[in-house]
Amino acid sequence: MRSLFSRNETLVALIIVAFCVVTAIVEPRFLTITTITDLLRNGIVIGIFAIAAMLVLVSGGIDVSFTAIAAFSMYSATKLMIALGVGDQIIVAFLVAAAIGLTLGLINAVFIGTLKLPTLIVTLGTLTAFRGFLLTFVGSQLITNVPPGMRDFARSMIFRGETPGGSFVAVPTATLFLVGAVVLTWFILNRTVLGRSIVAMGGSRESAARVGINVTAMQYFVYGYVGVLSGLAGIVHASLARVANPFDLVGLELQVIAAVVLGGARLTGGHGTITGTLLGVTLIVLINNSLIMLGIPSTWQNVVIGFLILLGTGMPAWQARRRAAASA
């Protein structure tokens, strides 16, 4: 029981429940299916990002460039789709975005895996470079008239219905991307030797190399995989927003990392779970979208998220410090 309560997952889950209960009391409208589907809709892109960011943290690195990769892949793929006249083929957008994302992710991997540079500063650099390249050489104009394939994708639903109260409820097909990312990443991390090698590498890189894990190859996989997920998330984002905006997404990265860290992933590597990550994302999305229902103006968002980061990382840090002091 003790260990259950000292876990971040439990803490975050409790905060989520408390938030929902209080909000429901203050604003009964909160407790509707519509709220849930709205939250889900708003959580798809940030959720995919968070899964990707979690994988990097588990491997012992940190990546802040994924939003730039997403914006780059999304905007380039959309432009290409229009230029090639295949606007009705959404699959083209996904394939192209995934390929671009993979390429950019592998660029990260070259600096991190091959040249062995510190991951935070490398990805800060690529974040800026990717975005600068996109805006200079690919384009900086909004594409408001997104290809029909993307519009259709945004309209397609895996579930559509009406509540007894008469409001519309719909779960977009895009949700499948989040589900897919969750299932695939969970499978890789827990059921494959590849995934266990990544976890092991996050625990101790030196030991990993000594048992014969190809550490560099693992890093190429991790950053490449993150690139692909980011590229796909970019298209999902543009489709749902019905606009390809090259200025979008960048700026979200720290919020995503905040969500992942709230979910219990450690910056030192080797620790992080899918459940925790999804809980962290839920909390951040709740705050971003429902704070106003609590009667707190949306200008307070940053303050609340900032406090949650300090609370979520401070409690375990403080406990660890107390334990260390007691046994010193």
Binding site: G125, A129, R131, G132, S140
Partner: peptide, 12 residues
């Protein structure tokens, strides 16, 4: 934007 690109590339 070009400067942004160059800053990032320079950092790397």
């Amino acid at each position: 934007f070009a400067k942004e690109f160059i800053w990032g590339a320079l950092l790397l």
